[in-house]
């Protein structure tokens, strides 16, 4: 064999061996990477920021479904059962959890640290059996992450859970958490700054999902139950007008952009529509931080007006 051919062959073999080793290590690494199942996108974002490549984070909710009201079938619950870690939001988020069989030792209630600060929802109906019977549970507001200090506590809970799961990456998780906490507290500072500049103007929300945000950032918020893509009926408009008379808000928060005809009719009533996306599910574009930053920016703009 010629010398040159030998050299070429040697290098090919070397490359092949290197590729195999790389593939093997990535497969091996993939095999030992723990699987973390979450119930909403904010938890997914926090877990991915903290865990990095050291965990596979899964949100099995379809993209067009609100995770708070998702109803998994038995097969989906089974996938949760096989996860290494299950991150729950707490505060009654994802009602399906109370009707499913999940391994307790893998469950982490990320908002347990501030469960004494949950907000009960207003106007929720309860019932009891007989006059002496105990009441069923009233509702609890569950968009806990919209108070960014609470979001940071939820992220801390995720850091601790991941550190228990794979203690060898504890330091990396701590560092990643500090970076995430810094970003969340930055959001908190910006939103606090907006609402502190002037007396809180009245705001109407399309859905009662901003309770924690309202409490934390001293927003004067009232809610209706409107969908962004469904024109309210006459009775609903009448109720809105009556509410607006008592509560002359010039800003309405929407989870998603309202249909143009709804926005136009509101504008005629002197109410500007703006989007504050709670980001419960994966966004079409961007991520949690970019969405929240955009939310704050829209709010800032509207407050400036």
């Amino acid at each position: 064999m010629k010398r040159s051919s030998f050299i070429v062959l040697f290098y090919c073999l070397f490359l092949l061996l290197f590729s195999l080793l790389y593939f093997w290590s990535s497969v091996a690494d993939a095999k030992v990477r723990p699987t973390v199942y979450v119930v909403n996108y904010p938890l997914m974002y926090f877990a991915q920021r903290i865990a990095g490549d050291h965990a596979q984070v899964v949100l099995p909710v379809p993209e067009d479904v609100d995770p708070a009201f998702w109803k998994p079938d038995a097969a989906a619950v089974e996938r949760f059962q096989h996860a290494d870690l299950i991150l729950l939001n707490g505060a009654g988020y994802a009602k399906w959890v109370s009707r499913a069989s999940l391994p307790r030792r893998k469950l982490v209630d990320t908002s347990a640290a501030f469960h004494d600060r949950y907000i009960a929802t207003e106007g929720g109906a309860t019932h009891s059996h007989g006059r002496e019977g105990e009441h069923s549970h009233a509702g609890t507001a569950f968009t806990t992450w919209l108070d960014f200090t609470q979001a940071a506590e939820q992220a801390k809970s995720i850091r601790d859970a991941l550190s228990r799961l794979t203690p060898e990456h504890k330091d990396e998780f701590a560092a990643n958490y500090r970076a995430l906490e810094s970003d969340l507290l930055d959001l908190d500072a910006r939103l606090s700054a907006i609402s502190s500049r002037r007396p809180a103007p009245p705001i109407i929300a399309s859905h009662p999902v901003y309770q924690y945000m309202a409490r934390r950032y001293a927003l004067d918020l009232k809610s209706v139950m409107w969908e962004p893509d469904a024109m309210p009926n006459d009775a609903e408009w009448k109720n809105f007008v009556e509410l607006h008379q008592r509560y002359p808000a010039d800003l309405m928060l929407w989870e998603a952009a309202p249909a143009p005809d709804i926005a136009e009719r509101l504008r005629k009533l002197g109410v500007q529509s703006t989007v504050f996306n709670p980001c419960g599910n994966r966004p079409e574009n961007g991520d949690f931080m970019s969405i929240m930053n955009a939310n704050i920016e829209y709010l800032q703009r509207n407050f400036a007006h």
Binding site: G124, A125, T126, H127, S128, H129, G130, R131, H135, A138
Partner: peptide, 15 residues
């Protein structure tokens, strides 16, 4: 329904 008081509904044994 036996009675409705406020936000609470009291159910009868017939339920």
């Amino acid at each position: 329904v036996i009675e409705r008081s406020g936000a609470n509904v009291v159910a009868s044994a017939k339920l």
